[in-house]
């Protein structure tokens, strides 16, 4: 990972590509070197498995979580809390933005697009998992990437390879994903910024040449 993160880091991508896990881990990572870190959950699409599930961990680390007042509840309405404006406007706070899947989810980001562009201190990373059924190829991923840019009025600045098959992931799968991410990089002209992997893969020899970002995942109860 870059040692000089931008003030605002945005994770977008196809739904189910792993944005929330990466955003939570990235915010915790930032907090090790920065005083004021906030994670903003702009997901207006996904009813389950939200940043809110990591509230305890984020609180303990001193990362501020701002999410819909209704996340995890029975209210299924696409609302963003007004409090999101504060860290976006406060140039001393490092912000991590977790955006809902696909172009539908990215619409919510459009609300802040002008502000973010005007400040010009952001990274917007396309999270890709080439083992997802609708983004198996670089070409399919590129379509989603362009749809998202159109919906949120912000251009991407980089790509994250988060290729995995859940519990069935092997190192070769991650490398195959990295290969496809490089194809996507060539097609889109965007740099491959990092490969995110479950933490037990972080020291794998075969991944030594990849820029690996380890992910600590929540324990599964079922």
């Amino acid at each position: 990972m870059s040692n000089h993160p931008k003030r605002i880091t945005i994770f977008c991508g196809h739904y189910g590509s792993g944005k929330t896990n990466i955003a939570v881990n990235f915010a915790l990572h930032l907090r090790q070197t920065h005083q004021k870190v906030a994670i903003l959950d702009l997901d207006i699409v996904n009813p389950y498995f939200r940043t809110k599930d990591s509230q305890t961990e984020l609180d303990a680390a001193g990362v501020e979580l701002i999410c819909s007042d209704y996340a995890g509840s029975n209210l299924d309405i696409p609302a963003l809390p007004a409090a999101m404006q504060r860290p976006i406007a406060d140039h001393d706070t490092f912000c991590v933005l977790d955006i809902g899947g696909d172009d539908q989810g990215a619409v919510a980001l459009g609300r802040f697009a002008d502000q973010i562009k005007a400040e010009g201190n952001y990274d917007m990373l396309f999270v890709s998992n080439f083992f997802r059924p609708l983004t198996k190829t670089a070409q399919e991923a590129l379509e989603v990437l362009r749809d998202i840019e159109t919906a949120c009025h912000l251009p991407f600045t980089g790509i994250v390879n988060n290729s995995n098959i859940g519990d069935a992931t092997a190192v070769d799968d991650i490398l195959l994903g990295a290969q496809k991410a490089k194809e996507l990089s060539a097609l889109s002209g965007l740099p491959l910024v990092m490969t995110s992997v479950r933490e037990d893969f972080a020291d794998a020899q075969a991944l030594a040449n990849e820029n690996v970002f380890p992910l600590h995942l929540q324990e599964k109860l079922i």
Binding site: G16, F131, R132, L134, K136, N164, I165, D172
Partner: peptide
């Protein structure tokens, strides 16, 4: 390379 994909339950229903 395995033939597996990572799917949501709902997607699995649709694809199947």
């Amino acid at each position: 390379m395995s033939e597996k994909v990572l799917m949501k339950g709902n997607e699995a229903i649709a694809e199947a």
